[in-house]
Each structure stands twice: as structure tokens, then as C-alpha cells.
Design a protein around this nucleic acid. Sequence first.
DNA 1: ATCCGTATCGGTAGAACTACTTAGAATAGG
DNA 2: CCTATTCTAAGTAGTTCTACCGATACGGAT
Lengths: 212, 212
Amino acid sequence: MPIKLTIADDHVMVINGLKMMLEKQENISIISTNINGNELLKALETEQPDVLLLDIQMPGMTGLELSPIITKTYPAIKIITLTNFEESHYIKQMIRNGVSGYLLKNTNQETLIQAIETVYNGGQFIDPQMQKVLLEESLLGKKVSAYEIPLTNREKEILKLIAEEKSNQQIADELFISLRTVETHRLNLSQKLNIKNTAGLVKEAIKRGLIQ
Amino acid sequence: MPIKLTIADDHVMVINGLKMMLEKQENISIISTNINGNELLKALETEQPDVLLLDIQMPGMTGLELSPIITKTYPAIKIITLTNFEESHYIKQMIRNGVSGYLLKNTNQETLIQAIETVYNGGQFIDPQMQKVLLEESLLGKKVSAYEIPLTNREKEILKLIAEEKSNQQIADELFISLRTVETHRLNLSQKLNIKNTAGLVKEAIKRGLIQ
DNA sequence: ATCCGTATCGGTAGAACTACTTAGAATAGG
DNA sequence: CCTATTCTAAGTAGTTCTACCGATACGGAT
């Protein structure tokens, strides 16, 4: 019986690339492809794959939000995260979320198949390129990248609203809190993330998938 | 003699998707694939394709900057722009830049091949999905989307620096102009684009491919 | 029971940005 | 050559954000 695979990625061409890479692989069968989180969740209700290839950046619900839901509801599904190199900082967070594999989008056919087979057999697979980076980081005792700095829910909420072009006053009105509180949160955000102005906060929000 | 094709896209998986879609097409031969602008320009020096599939969003030099250079240096090359739907607002600008085709990344095999053959034969090809949008816009006399609003070079430069988290003062120092001038440019940007704060400007810079 | 983190709110001061105005010099297009 | 655009700069005023300081309240963890 072949490994049942589901793919979720908002870029149809990426789905095509994956499909074509796997179509000659007789031990892997793609049972569903989805271009956003809601579609994916609906598809999972009908049939569960053995392995799920999940893009981190998707419109609406991102892989970051989806993975804990999926691992909770369908603990048998092994998740492999698909990501660009630039988004590779999510890796620790995703591993905490219970994903089994972490694959870069510039992967080749061989690595892809190896990853699917490894996680299907209960193993963990990290893209070799990422392994190298992580190893260096740990050996050199490097500073944890800024992206791992945890934010509280409230902070994330406020960061999101900042990136949505709201002023502090508008955020205060929307959350029914005082302007001063928003300012405090904002200051905390800047200090935690070592960011000095709005521009940096917006880019951080985008990196964290809070908007877009 | 088959149509010689070159692909430029920073996502290897997209290149794979395109390759696989075209590998059975005997009248199309891929002579080169490139993952950034400089690599592409170098490859073009060696051999020129008949048709170039060019991604708009690429690190370093974007398709937006590349297309006028290429059409000028190699006027025989027909360019097809590859883009996500969200970036579809570039279409008019790209057509002004002399590209022959405009294709969305969620295109299917049939459309892709049709587009390549059409532009190879001297025609112009706009993705059917885009045609629909453009038609509606023109029929309903819709407001031109904000993305088409032209910015001067200086304005783009300043928008880029804003998105790079520079303060007005830092921008002034970097460009050897007065703080007040930067403020003026910034105000003009806000008014032109109908954006009220830094957050909006940063997102606009990202949309226009000025950073990232 | 105490402590830590989170969320709330305030004062004060200064830095940064926004809004609207005017205007000269350089440059490009017709 | 003339005109329009772009880039430059500044006045004045107001708003918004930043950077410190401080505080209270609540819930969970030890």
C-alpha cells in the first residue's frame, strides 16, 4: 500500500512541481492537494493522509496556525513543513508544534522522497541545508535569531494591528484599552525584538505571518 | 527547430514545475534556468533564448528592473512575465516595459504552452484570468489600482529606505539632502498612494518589490 | 504564600512624523 | 524654446510615537 500524501500550498505551480516530482514514485500516492488552510481542513475530514506537505506561508490560516490544530485532531498524520530559506527561522517553533519534517522549497526529488519516507516510518527529517545552519548556530553558540523570541498573545494582536496601518489610538479603541497601554505594549515589542520603528515592526509582523 | 526557452525564478520548485510541464513538449527546449537576475544576465550573454519566462519577484534585481534592460540589450527575446495574482497590478507597467506575455503562476500546462507559442510567433499573451480583471476595470471605468500610480525614481528610493527602517534623518544623511526634503518626498508618497502612515508605506514598498 | 509574567494605566519629555503651504533650480519632452 | 515634471528646501503647527520613570491587578507556578 503506497504512502498516502496530501499537499497544501497556495502556489499551484509549487503543487505541480511536487506532483510531477512524485508521479513516478509508485510507493507514494497523492490523495489531495489544497491551496489554503480551510480547504485543507475540509479535505482532512474526508480522508486522512499518512504524510502532509504543508506550506508555512498561506493566505488566511498559515502553516504556523494549522500545524497544532492538525496534530491535535489527527495525531497520526506526519507533517512535513515546506518553506523558503528566508522563512527558515520558524523551524524551532514548528518542531515544538509537532511537525516531523522541515523541507526547503528548493529541495530536489531525492531529498523530497527521502523526507516523505523517513517521516512515514516515524523518523524526523530536517533539510540538510537547514541542519548545517542549525549545527553552526549551536556550535558557535550563536544568538537565537530574533524570530524565535516569543510574543504574548496580546503583543501579537497589537503587532498585527500595527501592521494593518492602525495608529496607537485606533488600536486602543479597537481593543477597548487605553492609549498608554498600547504604547507600553508597543515599546515592549520594540525592546523584545530589538526593533526601532514602525517599519521594522511591520516587516516582523509579515515574517511571523500575522498579516498577508 | 524547437523554441529556445529560458526560465528565471528564485523558487527552484517553480522552475521544476515549469520544467516538468514542458519536458514532453518537443517543440520547446529549455536552454537555461536561473534563480536570480545576475545569473540570468550572465546566461544571456552566452546564449539567447527565443522566449524568457521571467518572475517578477526575485531577490536582488526584480523582473521589473530586469525587463527594460533585457528588451534593450536583446530586443529579439520575447519576455513572458510570471507572477502571482497578488502582484498582478504590475501588468501595465510590464507591458510598458515591453514584455509580450503576462502569466499567472497558477496557470495550467495548456495555457503555459499556448503563451509560449503565441509570443514566439510575435503575438501578445495575457493570462485569461487577468484579461477578465482588466476588462472589468475598463468597462466599469474603475479607479486604477493604487499600484499603478507611478513614482519618481527619487520617491522609489526614499520609499525603499523607509522600508529599510531608516528614519527621515538617516535618509537625509544617506542621500545628502535636507531632512525637510525627505519629509516632503514622504508626504508626496503618502498623498500619491493615499497611505496614512509608515506601516502602509512599508507594505507598499514590499508590494512594489523595492525590498526583500 | 510568594513570585513571576502578563496586562493594564499614568506622567513627562523629547524625538519623529504629518499636514499644508510656498518656491527656486535642474531636467526632460514636445 | 517653452512647459511640465522632478528634486530640492523651508515655515508653521499639530499629531504621533519613543523612552524613560512609575504603579496596580490577576493568574499560574513553585
